[in-house]
């Protein structure tokens, strides 16, 4: 009989204990704590998926909330009850009579975000470094402006309220597992190695036969897919969606998670996402009671600066903890 490798047993242990945790949490914690745990999960999806684009292939993208917004709005329009659609929105005929279940709506949202990434990737990914960061920032602003002005579909700055509260822990953490699985699988595959090679030295990667542009576009689109999913989960967690939610501040949060965790490290993105989203959520009541808003953000910026000074490669560097990776023979 073939022995199961130790690292695979660990994956199993993690998924199982996650499932047990979700099960217990749903029956013991109150709504407030549950919503925090949901947000933590959504941040994990965001950080781990940005790590594919930013960490693996080295594309410094600030556009993640833009893809999230596209996925979020798409999913919301698709799940919005038909009766409410007639009241609030002016949609084309076929769409106004359509209300999809959550899963197909989420998937369509993710795919739309991904397709957008393909379209903007063609011009934007010809840029490098700072220019790419600025261009993706521009994309984020364009998305916000479009959403704000396309009132017939998005209700503009008011946003859409009263979305069905479909998101719960099982949804969020199932997607956390899928996101982790996909990025883990890619990182330790031939395809992922060519992504990492591009990050390390694009010219050398191209000279060994890597299709530079295509691989870059794919990694942007892959990150965008999960961002779109996270947007859909987010919208149906807070049961409202406004253009202001998908701001540069959010982009900053996600990028900080990837950088602090260690660009390219999945475990790092995971740990940093848990750490930072818990900090911001825990500080919220304190901020309200002291009437001093922004303590969480200041703390986050402080940690970022300290990490950049004392450990510039992030907590985990580009690696994963040894017990989780296959031993080479």
């Amino acid at each position: 009989m073939k022995r199961i490798p130790l690292h695979q047993i660990w994956y199993f242990v993690f998924v199982l204990s996650g499932a047990v945790f979700v099960f217990i949490a749903r029956s013991t914690f109150n709504e407030y704590i549950l919503s925090i745990i949901n947000f933590v999960g959504i941040y994990i999806i965001l950080a781990v998926s940005l790590n594919i684009t930013n960490g693996f292939t080295g594309l410094f993208s600030l556009g993640h909330p833009g893809f999230m917004a596209i996925g979020g709005y798409m999913t919301s329009v698709l799940t919005f009850p038909v009766a409410k659609k007639a009241m609030f929105l002016e949609l084309p005929g076929w769409l106004s009579h359509l209300a999809l279940p959550f899963l197909p709506a989420l998937l369509i949202g993710g795919v739309c975000a991904s397709l957008t990434a393909f379209v903007i990737g063609v011009p934007v990914l010809r840029l490098r470094g700072h220019y790419l960061a600025v261009a993706t920032l521009g994309f984020l602003i364009i998305v916000q402006v479009l959403i704000t002005n396309w009132e017939s579909v998005t209700r503009g700055p008011l946003g859409m309220n009263g979305l069905p509260a479909l998101t719960h822990l099982w949804w969020v953490y199932a997607w956390v597992v899928i996101t982790l699985y996909v990025s883990w699988k890619i990182k330790f595959s031939s395809y992922g190695r060519s992504m990492l090679a591009i990050r390390e030295d694009p010219l050398a990667a191209q000279c060994v036969g890597t299709r530079l542009f295509r691989t870059r576009v794919v990694s942007l689109a892959l990150g965008a897919f999960f961002a779109g999913i996270a947007g859909g989960l987010w919208a149906h967690l807070v049961t409202a969606i406004t253009p202001a939610s998908f701001s540069l501040v959010l982009a900053f949060h996600i990028v900080v998670m990837v950088v602090v965790g260690g660009s390219g490290s999945i475990s790092g993105a995971f740990v940093a996402a848990v750490l930072f989203s818990t900090i911001t959520e825990l500080f919220r009541p304190l901020e309200e009671s002291l009437d001093a808003y922004g303590i969480g953000e200041i703390l986050m910026a402080l940690i970022l600066i300290l990490i950049l000074i004392y450990r510039p490669t992030g907590i985990f560097g580009t690696r994963e903890p040894g017990f989780l990776t296959a031993k080479s023979t």
């Binding site: 595959s189 031939s190 190695r193 060519s194 990492l196 090679a197 990667a205 060994v208 036969g209 890597t210």
Partner: peptide, 10 residues
């Protein structure tokens, strides 16, 4: 391995 990907990888 990164150089093997273009002609051997999936």
């Amino acid at each position: 391995k990164a150089a093997l990907h273009p002609h051997m990888g999936c």
